[in-house]
Design a binder for these strands. Sequence first.
RNA 1: GGACGCGUAGCUCAGCUGGUUAGAGCGCUGCUUUCACACAGCAGAGGUCCGGGGUUCGAGUCCCUGCGCGUCCACCA
Length: 817
Amino acid sequence: AAEGSSRQALGREAFVARTAQFVETTGGEILNQLKSIGASADWTRTANTHTEQMSAAVTEAFVRQFEDGLVYRGHRVIHWCPRCMTSLSDEEAEFNDTQGALYHIRYRLADDPSRSITVATTRPETLLGDVAVAVNPTDERYADLLGKLLVLPINGVRIQVIADDYTDAEFGTGAVKITPAHDPNDFEVGMRHNLATPVIMDAEARMNGAGDAIDRVPPELRGVDRFEARERIVNMLRDTGALVKVEPHAHAVRHCYRCDTVVEPRLSDQWFVKMAPLAKPALEAVRTGRIRIMPERWEAVYINWLEGIRDWNISRQLWWGHRVPVYYCDACGAAPKASRTTLTTCDCGAPLRQDEDVLDTWFSSWLWPISTLGWPNESSADLKAFYPGDVLVTAPEILFFWVSRMIMSGFHFMGDAPYHTVYLHGTVRDMQHRKMSKSLGNGIDPLDVVKLYGADSLRWTMIAGMGLGVDVLLDPTDLEKSFAPGRNFLTKLWNIGRFLLTKVGSDPVQPLSAIAPSALTIADRWILDRLDAAIADANAALGPVRPGASGRWTDAERTQGMRLDAYADAGRRFVWNELADWYLESVKPRLSAGGDDADVARAVLVHAFDNALRLLQPVIPFITETLWAKLPALGDASHRGAEFLCTSAWPEARPSSANGDAFELVRNATLAIRQVRNEYKLKPGKFIEVTLVPSPADAAAAPSLVETIGALTRASVSLLPAGDAQAAHQVLPGGSEIVIALTQLRDELSADDAAKEAARLRAEIDATQKILDGVRAKLANESFTSRAKPEVVEGARAQARDLAQKVDALTRKVEAL
RNA sequence: GGACGCGUAGCUCAGCUGGUUAGAGCGCUGCUUUCACACAGCAGAGGUCCGGGGUUCGAGUCCCUGCGCGUCCACCA
């Protein structure tokens, strides 16, 4: 249309050629986008449904089902788009809630104009095609009118009053006008009562009778568009007094999913697929766990749809698509023939004519999992190797169009499901939760994002923000807001890499396995523990990848995993909050000191970073691969085990984890000292003396940790067995205490500040005491101590101890002030 | 009309089978350009977990109900 042309102007052949050209160009763009964002596929195996091989598969499927009686020709009322000039399947005709009107129209009796029946309709223009008025058989109001003739207003056609269960006595007037050619339900009623099917609209939905029915359309209305006709007919009814009333009426109206035109029900001949036999195994597959759909709630939607499934209209009055492989002989009237090869001549010698229609695009798509692997050639090596596949990742809106039909075709043609998991992801929307679209101008071109923030930032933002079945909200007017956090994380990762490069360089580093466990410090053991935890968290988030040996998901398994957000978060937490914030900072003095311990630290550092890169590679393949390549010191060749990070092994937790819990003392002490420094507004450069009073539990580890604590806090940390009343006092979660002589802090404080500080501390004591009272009350409750899990009770006890110590310490501190 | 989902910090969201003082990112406040990183670091502020009932020793988490959003399905003309 943009080129000032149309398919009719081009003609069938030229139109198909022009469309093929468009597909080629657009398809290439999509492939480029996918490659730009790092989609990792075998690009030598791209496929499209219009290649010869794929087309042969489509024809084969059609012919086979035609021969089995699953594909049949049906004469009925289908959804018709008057703009696209084609029929639509049920799924392609989408409901939109529309504010319309219910028109009450009086039809008078032919033999007694004083009597009448009033019908209610939302589409008064169709009355020209009415053949009956139906009432409910039990409706006594109309009992004496059954069989009588009514006169249609406007065209004066005589129609009968019939009884049919379809009519609901409660709705409207209890009398329904029956227009078999223009309403699917009326068509059913018409069939039951053997009624005529006059067609009063043409393919473009203009008032026009087909054949004899032309007489039903008054000359002044012929060729008038349906909506214009509605208005004019309503006026005519009003003028003649036939219009009883008009009331507002909200109802759902079907619209064409391509162009949003109001769908016109149309009587025509179409090809259908009988769905009930196909639906059966597809239903069983989900019910028995052969296939799981995630999020789980979509399983109910899927089952509901399949249980009520209706036959699939697969013919389209379009040109672009696979042509229906059916041939007709106009001469001898032989039955239509479906054929795998092009037929030209009938047995009777006359030329054969191929069906003009093409197949629904989904009729080729539903074969995708098998046709791309060589079906119908069942000895195809690809089919044997790759069918069935594992996971289908797609959007929920094509669950019916595509997903369920692929499952049906998989069972029908291959005897098995095409995949064991259907993952339905969220949709990218703008901040007003609107879908991104060209017409709204609220879209984001992924290539723009790649240019500004990098492909990994885009991937990170999508994956880390992708809760199971949750939409991702992005702001098209503020890319920074959406993509900076991802970009910042990547920068962080990059800078860790730079740090390693300066501290490790290209020197060979021993693999962790070569380090004696006894040489590992508490910090080393801690970060290795955290790494194990991150790997475990990531594995748990991703969940079981395949069903167990039975090939079916258990009820427990089918809801587990596929939490990409939790997986990404596990990686981010480890890299940023554990590796960078704590381990890396604590290890700096050791690296500068050199010697054997520096080698140990390097080995641990390299091991942790290497595993972090492996863990995150699927999310951010570009930066992780680059860092891996730049850091040859990430273990020796045998340690790496692969040429590329993307082909290296998924990280595994170490068989025996050493306990690094003691490192918590470093973290807690550091946090406490920093808090004091901030509280007393010490200059960052100011060096202070700190005393650590370790609890019995921390006593053993404390001597080896004071140096690290000092380095992290610009303090000289010494150990003391007892507290000092004249000090800023902090109680750590493990029971150890931090003491800092007030003489170091006082000169920064005015008397006024001290008073304020004391008041603040009193408030903190009160708050802490309140919590403590609550915990104590809980512990005093026998129902709690006897019924709650032991670890919960133990946790509460520990909490009470910590809180009590904290209150004590705070009290001493405030007294000192 | 039927079914389902959501409503947690200013914003976007995590919170598994009910159990420590409810978390993250962004934003906000204060301090800091310390030799990986200011796309950063450190310390903070900020929440009646939509309202109302109920179950329980204990509820953001379970049940009922109201309100507000959203999705899917549907032949009431």
